[in-house]
Design a protein around this nucleic acid. Sequence first.
DNA 1: ATTTAAATAAGTATTTTTACTTAATTATTT
DNA 2: AAATAATTAAGTAAAAATACTTATTTAAAT
Lengths: 219, 219
Amino acid sequence: MNDTIRVVLADDHFFVRDGIKSLLESEKNIVVVGEATDGLEALEVVTTTKPDLLIVDIRMPHHTGIEVVEKLRNQNNTVKIIVLSMHESEEYVLKSIKAGADGYLLKGSSKEEFLKALHAVANGGKYFTGDISSILINQLTSATSTLEPKPALAEDLTITKREKEILTLLLSGKGNKEIAEALEISKRTAEVHRFNLMKKLKVKNLMELSNKATEYSLI
Amino acid sequence: MNDTIRVVLADDHFFVRDGIKSLLESEKNIVVVGEATDGLEALEVVTTTKPDLLIVDIRMPHHTGIEVVEKLRNQNNTVKIIVLSMHESEEYVLKSIKAGADGYLLKGSSKEEFLKALHAVANGGKYFTGDISSILINQLTSATSTLEPKPALAEDLTITKREKEILTLLLSGKGNKEIAEALEISKRTAEVHRFNLMKKLKVKNLMELSNKATEYSLI
DNA sequence: ATTTAAATAAGTATTTTTACTTAATTATTT
DNA sequence: AAATAATTAAGTAAAAATACTTATTTAAAT
């Protein structure tokens, strides 16, 4: 595509850098233009050599790889960055993404995957190894993911104030008795409210109530 | 780890199925127990052969691979599913995740990646090829990303595979009887699993279970 | 001032869940 | 091969929820 990819390696272990270097040597359009053995040095070397790509280990003395990413992005440095990690750490993966890394690889990656990631990132893409996909998927499926178009508020069903109170307590894990106590009403009353709620929402048990309630964000 | 992984292949092209089969043949603990040439057949074969894993192509006559995933999940079928696709389509990737696929591979995947994904998914993990990470990252970084608050996984509590299945069904609104039917076990067994779950999580009712489970993202 | 709607509560009967215990069968690990 | 862990399932008894119905007492709207 375009000319050579200029790479900086940052890892405190010589043998790791060497391993990567020999791996990259076989590729003709990749050249390692700098190396660093800790976070501070990595920042320096990137600033002076202005590489296309920085491959940085997470665990390093003086600033972790993630901190390096953060600092570079804070100074609006658009160098592409691939973070290397020993293990599949959810915390590290998410922090790396947030910091602005373009890729995330495990040290056990195959040469093929390594090069694939390198080219993908150098070409402006992202590459996060499939090994950590569970983390990404968890993030996407949990919480307020953008996957759902819109919960679509219920139009005709009306929930009364009291029913909403009961709902809240119900979803917090309270039983009828506890709800009755909390609201200083009879247990039977709490039961009726619960019954009416379930009828209104057309559900047949607590979990469906819970699911539907959150779906329509009634709480 | 455990015994053989029983696989069903669903793809309308004979040569694709054959290619995958020959690729899987080299693995001793993987056995292809069924094949399907369209979506409907895939649903049938999965129902009858009850495999551990379904490898399904996106493009198929009568129901796409994604529709197959949706239908299976709607009937609470917990078979592991890897979706195969020709191209990196954002729409397909996101729809697959939403539908409940456990993995996503491009047809150009290497044998190594294919097997890695297969084992990861068979063991209850997720595997979405690094080639599509840009899509995942985009989703995560755009919109309301939940990158900040991390509830921190519970350290010592271990939830078994079966318990996780029960949990999922429980949270989907199923009662013990329905769970028993879905999993083809006795109602009493379902009750015991539920009891053990609640004991492990130290909760005293369904809603607390639900809340704690989502808090620690056990589902 | 009245209807209407909301909140209150009891009755009854059936079903489900809770809270254990015991124990036989697999699976998995050592 | 032995030990440990997971899955299976039955028993028992008390507690809670489900599924209603009926009915009185506030509150709010017309």
